[in-house]
């Protein structure tokens, strides 16, 4: 390896390292802020108070409507479960999307195969007709 080639190789490696360093620098700045922003909007004192108010008014309404305490508490618990099921819902949607994406790719592949089969058949048919015409 000549000196020039060695130098070029070294410069290429150096530029890769510099690029990686820039990427790492951006990630270290942006990713934690992004996570904090998303999760922080759900878990804040204000959000907790709002959710508490909603559950409390639900419970108070049930009690005012004459529902026994035990049942009202159970219903409030079920009401709160909707809130926790939100995580499952997002998870489910993500999984379903992935599944659908896979299914769609499979469907598209099958459709492509079907189209090429039909095209081939019609070409064969036309060709055989042309041959028969010529033979006559």
């Amino acid at each position: 390896m000549t000196e020039d080639e060695r130098r070029k190789r070294y410069e290429m490696r150096l530029s890769d390292i510099e690029e990686f360093q820039e990427v790492m620098s951006i990630i270290s700045r942006e990713v934690p802020a992004m996570i904090k922003g998303i999760v922080g909007s759900i878990f804040s004192e204000e959000a907790g108070r709002e959710m508490g108010r909603a559950a409390a008014s639900f419970y108070a309404e049930l009690k005012a409507g004459g529902i026994p305490e035990e049942t009202a508490l159970k219903m409030t618990e079920n009401y709160m479960k909707i809130f926790t099921d939100m995580g499952d819902l997002i998870k489910g949607v993500m999984e379903k999307r992935g599944y659908k994406g896979e299914t769609k790719r499979k469907e598209m592949r099958e459709l492509g195969e079907e189209i090429s089969r039909l095209v081939m058949e019609s070409v064969k048919e036309k060709l055989s007709k042309e041959i028969k015409k010529k033979e006559r």
């Binding site: 804040s44 004192e45 907790g48 108070r49 959710m51 508490g52 409390a56 419970y59």
Partner: peptide, 10 residues
């Protein structure tokens, strides 16, 4: 903090 606020409302 959210839990505390939630509990106090209930």
């Amino acid at each position: 903090k959210a839990r505390r606020a939630f509990e106090s409302e209930l």
